[in-house]
Amino acid sequence: MIVFVRFNSSHGFPVEVDSDTSIFQLKEVVAKRQGVPADQLRVIFAGKELRNDWTVQNCDLDQQSIVHIVQRPWRKGQEMNATGGDDPRNAAGGCEREPQSLTRVDLSSSVLPGDSVGLAVILHTDSRKDSPPAGSPAGRSIYNSFYVYCKGPCQRVQPGKLRVQCSTCRQATLTLTQGPSCWDDVLIPNRMSGECQSPHCPGTSAEFFFKCGAHPTSDKETSVALHLIATNSRNITCITCTDVRSPVLVFQCNSRHVICLDCFHLYCVTRLNDRQFVHDPQLGYSLPCVAGCPNSLIKELHHFRILGEEQYNRYQQYGAEECVLQMGGVLCPRPGCGAGLLPEPDQRKVTCEGGNGLGCGFAFCRECKEAYHEGECSAVFEASGTTTQAYRVDERAAEQARWEAASKETIKKTTKPCPRCHVPVEKNGGCMHMKCPQPQCRLEWCWNCGCEWNRVCMGDHWFDV
C-alpha cells in the first residue's frame, strides 16, 4: 500500500509500505531520502505521535493516508518512550493509558441525555464484534464512529474520518494533550489543546475536521460531520418502519427517538411537499423529531443533505422563500418566477423588478396576487391545505425507538455506581478489583462488596467470576 509523507509540512511524497511495516522502518526510509538522522524524526498522525514499535496496521493507516513527519531533536526523557523501550505506560498493571487514536474515538455516547454525564468515556458498548469485510486488514473493525456528507465523488452519507490540525499553522502536526470525549470537544473551536510539532510553531489549540472515509482524499478535501447519525450498535428499532437498520439518525429530543435514513428521507420529502418545515429565527429551515417532541429541531442543517441534490435544492429554495415571508415580504405569483420581494408595508401595487435578471417585471396586487387592478379585489380565496398535519407515529413504536432507553438498560445490566462519587462504572470481565475512572475520584473498590478495596476482598473473592 501507499502512504503519503509530508516532511516538515512540505509537499508530500509517496512511500510504499506493508501492513506489518513498523513506524521506525518508515522513519528509516524517510531519513534516507531526506539525509537526516532517523532518531530525530517524529511521525504524527490523527493528533498522535506514533511509536517506533507500532506497525502501519496498528495505527489504522489506510491506503493513501497522509502522515506528517517532522525533524525535531529529542528532548530529555522522550527518546526512550518513542523507541518502544522502557515506557512506564506499558508496564503490566499500570494505570496510565495511551491517548486514544482519533481513528478509534467514539462519540456516540454523547447523544445520551444530559443526566448521563461521564458515560462518553466510561461506558463502552460490546456491539462492535462484526466481522471485518472481505479485503480489510485482519482485526480491523467495521464499526463506524462518525458519518459525514461527502460532496465529492460519493454525493451521499458516508463513514467519516476525524482529523485534527494546529489552529495556528493549519498543519496536521499537532499532538493532542488528551483525546475528545464528546461532540462539544470536536465542534467547539479551541476547546481542546495540544502541542504543535512543526518547527518554530508555538500553536497549542486544536482544530478538528472530518474527511470522507470511503475514498482517498487530499489535504484540502473536508466534509461536514453529521453528528446525529450513528451506527445502530444498540439495535434500536426505527420509529417509523420498526426495522432494525444501521446507520440511524438520533433526534435530540428527551427520548432520543431513532429513525433509519430511508424513513428520514421520506419524512423530509413529505414535509417538504406540504411546505411544513419549521422556520426558526436562529436555526433556519428545519424539522423536529418525527414524533413531534418539543425542543427537538435539527440544529445542523447539513443533515438535510440526505435528501439528495434535487430535493436539497428545493429545500434551500423553500427556506429562502419562507425567510422572505417571515420578513413581511411577498413572492411573485407569476408561474416560473417566484422571486422574493420586500415592498413597503402599505404598498398595494407590487412590481417584480426586472433588474439584474432576477425579476420578471410582472405587476400584481398584494392582496389577491392577481395582475394589478384598481378598486376592490374580486375574490380572495383562503389558501387550502395549509394546516399542519401531524406525522403519524405509532405510540408503541415510539416507545421502542428510544436510544436513551437502550442506554439505561445497558447501564443497569453492566454497571454499578462507584461507592464514593456514584458514577456508573462498567465491568466487562476481569477481577473484582475496580478503579473509578473519574479523575477527581480514582477510588479503588470491590465490585462484589461495593466497598473500598481491602485485604478481605483480596483474599476471599479477588478473582471470582
Rank of each mutant, 00 (worst) to 15 (best):
Q34A: 08
M327K: 15
M458Y: 15
Q171W: 04
K48A: 04
C238F: 00
Q64V: 04
H265V: 07
G152N: 14
V224F: 11
S131T: 12
R392M: 10
P153D: 10
R256V: 01
N52Q: 04
P137C: 12
E353D: 11
R420S: 15
E404P: 13
Q252M: 07
I306K: 00
D130M: 10
E452R: 15
F24W: 13
F277L: 12
S145K: 06
V36K: 03
R256P: 01
S223N: 07
A46H: 14
A230H: 15
C201A: 01
G135K: 13
A390S: 14
G12S: 10
G213M: 07
S255V: 07
G308S: 05
Q178I: 08
K369G: 11
I23M: 07
N235V: 04
C196G: 01
L61C: 02
L272C: 02
W74I: 10
Q100T: 11
F24I: 10
F264L: 04
G94A: 13
F264V: 02
I298T: 01
R420N: 15
E353K: 09
Q178C: 07
S131K: 10
D185L: 00
C196I: 00
H11E: 05
K299I: 05
P73M: 06
E322C: 04
Q389N: 15
F251N: 03
E404C: 08
R89K: 13
G429M: 10
C260N: 01
N90V: 14
D243Y: 11
V250R: 09
N295A: 07
F208Q: 00
L301V: 09
P202N: 13
E376V: 09
V350W: 04
Y149V: 03
W445T: 03
H11R: 05
D60E: 14
A92C: 11
L443I: 07
S9Y: 04
D243A: 13
C436E: 01
R97C: 09
R6I: 03
S19F: 06
V350T: 05
T217H: 11
F304H: 01
S407C: 11
V393E: 04
S109K: 13
V393F: 07
K416C: 06
R455S: 15
G135V: 12
G329V: 03
P199I: 08
K416D: 06
G429N: 15
V157S: 03
H257V: 01
T204C: 05
V56C: 07
Y267R: 01
C421T: 00
